[in-house]
Design a protein around this nucleic acid. Structure first.
Lengths: 240, 240
DNA sequence: CGATTTGTTGATCTTACTCAATAATCGTGG
DNA sequence: CCACGATTATTGAGTAAGATCAACAAATCG
């Protein structure tokens, strides 16, 4: 059995494809990494994975479903920080303070893998490629957050929604799912909140993009009819 | 000579206080970390430290002065991503892609230390506490970016500026500088851009906060007259 | 199947942007 | 060191993008 095969099997099982680096770990190392992962934490819609202020012990990899993270400000308003799809990792913001700075909640029936961070620290001291990969993972999250920053600082409502949909599309594509037809796991209110808009604005722009034959919107089902037009409204260069 | 002393000396010399963990590295380890740092890259106002797209080789620690990072969008507009003060580290967003995703430019005469990332990778495999600290550094940046996200998504112009000044104040305090009187190293246009506002709005709000006896503003010199009022306008709980 | 939540559409209002003019500051060279 | 132009900051007036308020429609759930 070659190591790539082993890797793929464990991937499908626990969403570790983000944590592991395909082709760079030996079969034995992969087994080690595999052994620290606690599988199958099943969550129902609206279940909490962790709460703001909880002691930080583990990162979580989404295996199926989807999770949103948010924090509550002084007036009690929720502020959505991020959406996590299968294969993505949450909790990295908590490593520094050792407390979760956000609350994580399932947007639909989901399952996640728990990866005790202490084990990662120990393992990544010995497995160079795991350490390298952890640095990359954390760096990728920084870059992602900075892209969102740019979106929120200057872009119009239409640009924000366009870029948001393009981003989702690319993330689904990475997971080998359709990049043109997908189901939004989050409510309009969550999209609005995440993008710093009012729900009504999100609704209006979905309608507008549908009228312009850029999208087909049926509730949470989205079809991107023209990737080019969607990039145009977002003022984004089209990815190849 | 005890290790703490050694640490403090090297700190003042090269701004490594952020990269090292006081009291957790042995004197020998500290010397090792010290040895990978290239000191004293002096920069004049408007000099570039690196450019968007450059190959990533090193992180940089600001030793004196201040650096801004920004990226240029498709229409050629600058979008400010962050401001870096003495003791802070830039470049962490580039680890994943191995290319700088932003351009870094000195806002005043500055000097930085260059820390080759490959050396960090090698060293942090052997020095457990350095690895732990690197994870924390990256995590802290994620958390910081997410806080800014919240600011940009929902807050009013006044709240943004209030929170921005409070944040600067705390960062100066951490560096043992006055938290109530300091010089803004960046232009109004940079503040506006960073906070997603128009220059005129920043100017007006500075005037308004001055009239309300919250601030004293004299060009780039800022004095916070009432920390409490500043927290109030930002709807922030006052830090102790 | 009715109740509650979620999404859409319309009318009005507000915050912050744009445009414009002026004032202050900075940087450079005489 | 001062004078000059250029950049940067302030202030005012008008405007627009998106928020809020309100009513209704559709989807979800027990």
């Amino acid at each position: 059995m070659n190591s790539t095969k082993t890797f793929n099997v464990s991937c499908q099982q626990c969403g570790l494809n983000e944590l592991c680096i395909p082709h760079t770990l030996t079969s034995g190392e992969m087994d080690e990494v595999d052994s620290i992962v606690k599988r199958g934490k099943p969550l129902q819609r609206s279940d909490y994975l962790f709460n703001e202020g909880d002691a930080f012990k583990s990162l979580f990899a989404v295996r199926s479903g989807s999770i949103k993270s948010f924090s509550i400000d002084d007036e009690g308003n929720e502020q959505v920080i991020g959406f996590y799809l299968p294969g993505e990792i949450l909790g990295m913001d908590a490593i520094d303070s050792q407390r979760h700075t956000t609350t994580a909640r399932a947007m639909e029936t989901s399952s996640v893998c728990e990866i005790p961070f202490e084990s990662i620290e120990i393992l990544s001291s010995n497995i160079r490629n795991l350490q390298v990969h952890m640095y990359k993972l954390l760096s990728r999250e920084i870059h992602f957050d900075q892209e969102l920053q740019m979106l929120l600082a200057k872009k119009t409502a239409e640009e924000r929604i366009g870029a948001f949909l393009m981003n989702l599309s690319q993330r689904y594509e990475q997971r080998k799912l359709s990049s043109t037809r997908f189901r939004l796991p989050m409510a309009r209110a969550d999209i609005a909140n995440y993008l710093g808009l009012a729900v009504e604005t999100v609704s209006r722009i979905f309608t507008r993009l549908q009228t312009a034959d850029v999208l087909k919107v049926e509730g949470k089902e989205i079809e991107i009819l023209s990737r080019k037009s969607l990039c145009d409204v977002s003022h984004l260069k089209e990815p190849e």
